[in-house]
Design a binder for these strands. Structure first.
Length: 336
DNA sequence: CAAACGTGGGA
DNA sequence: TTCCCAAGTTT
């Protein structure tokens, strides 16, 4: 068992690639955190597990500055999971505003109902139970267990992956997908004591967000720059650049336009009106040319999760062929 | 495992 | 203007 663990666990006095003992690196990062951490509301002493959970969902692929105001309003309107569970999907999506990936709002809503119905209205503390909630994956389950409940779990997010890739592997950026080696490294770095592990998780993540950034890292401000394998190697460029996300001319773009129209609506939106509004949008001027991308499955499922890919593809094909007329039998409305 | 999924600000 | 990227999850 122990013999199979990574070097740093086998030998606490082991050194990082650039020479500093792992213990020193951990202490330096945590110390830096104490003096440089942002004062975020979901870290405040009066935070609640529910507030932490909401923040983690909102922060997925979304900058802190944009989450802040939405999080405040959200917690004020729905202070507990049961409060959100009782809301209508339409209200939930509207309150989500323009955070993006609105399906997160719907999944959070579903998670709230699950918490109300199966966990007595309390956010579960157990990692496995958190993982079972809609919209909560490996990262978020660990994050809530750690940041809301103070447990010892290895948190691995994009910041932590990047910091550890640079510090210990000498690479500018981690691989596209999480590797077993990365997980093993992160596990091996986690302090044994609970309090120390929580602090380490939080500190490394913050370091990645404020100093060891993806674009222009501020190595001059880094508390462990002298131990960084990447810096020592001359800060070599990334080996493979990440793929961009398709947007123009895709139904994803049209989905965004649809969301914009429906978000601003107070009453149900008749489809003809929706199409009229969309006609003037940039989305339809790109790619398709007609209002086509108003995919049937998207129309009927706007406030739910997307329909199966095959169904969407078929619907899109049909609309492209028949144009506006074909969309007539697809109703658009806001539930509740 | 790759692709899909929203949005907006900075380089 | 175009491209990159931000505390990921799901299929």
């Amino acid at each position: 068992m122990v013999s199979r663990l990574p070097w740093s666990v086998m030998n606490p006095n082991a050194e990082s690639p650039a020479g500093a003992p792992v213990e020193d690196v951990r202490r330096a990062v945590v110390e830096w955190y104490r003096g440089s951490a942002r004062d975020l509301p979901w870290r405040a002493p009066q935070r609640t597990p529910w507030g932490v959970l909401v923040s983690e969902i909102m922060l997925q692929q979304t900058p802190v500055v944009r989450v802040l105001p939405v999080w405040q309003r959200w917690l004020q309107r729905w202070p507990t999971p049961s409060d959100l569970a009782a809301a209508s999907p339409a209200d939930v999506v509207r309150e989500w505003g323009r955070l993006g990936y609105p399906r997160r709002a719907l999944r959070l809503h579903a998670a709230a109902q699950c918490i109300r119905d199966e966990h007595g209205g309390r956010v579960p503390r157990d990692h496995a139970e958190l993982l079972a909630l809609p919209g909560i994956g490996a990262y978020t389950a660990a994050a809530v267990a750690v940041f809301a409940f103070g447990q010892r779990h290895t948190v691995v997010d994009t910041n932590i992956r990047r910091v550890e890739a640079r510090l210990f592997s000498g690479r500018a950026l981690p691989a596209r997908s999480l590797t077993a080696a990365e997980t093993a490294l992160a596990d091996s770095l986690l302090p044994e004591d609970v309090a120390g592990s929580v602090a380490w998780n939080q500190a490394v993540m913050e370091l990645g967000a404020l100093v060891c950034m993806a674009r222009s890292p501020r190595c001059g401000e880094c508390p462990v720059r002298d131990s960084c394998a990447w810096l020592a190697a001359g800060s070599p460029p990334p080996e493979e650049t990440p793929r961009g996300q398709a947007w123009h001319g895709t139904d994803r773009q049209v989905r965004g336009a649809i969301m914009a129209v429906l978000r601003s609506a107070v009453d149900p939106v008749p489809e003809p009106l929706l199409l009229t509004d969309l006609t003037g949008s940039e989305a339809l001027a790109q790619g398709h040319g007609a209002p086509p991308a108003v995919v049937v499955a998207e129309l009927t499922a706007l406030w739910r999760l997307p329909a199966p890919p095959e169904q969407r593809r078929r619907a899109l094909t049909g609309l492209l062929a028949d144009g506006l007329a074909a969309a007539d039998d697809a109703g658009v409305s806001l539930p509740g």
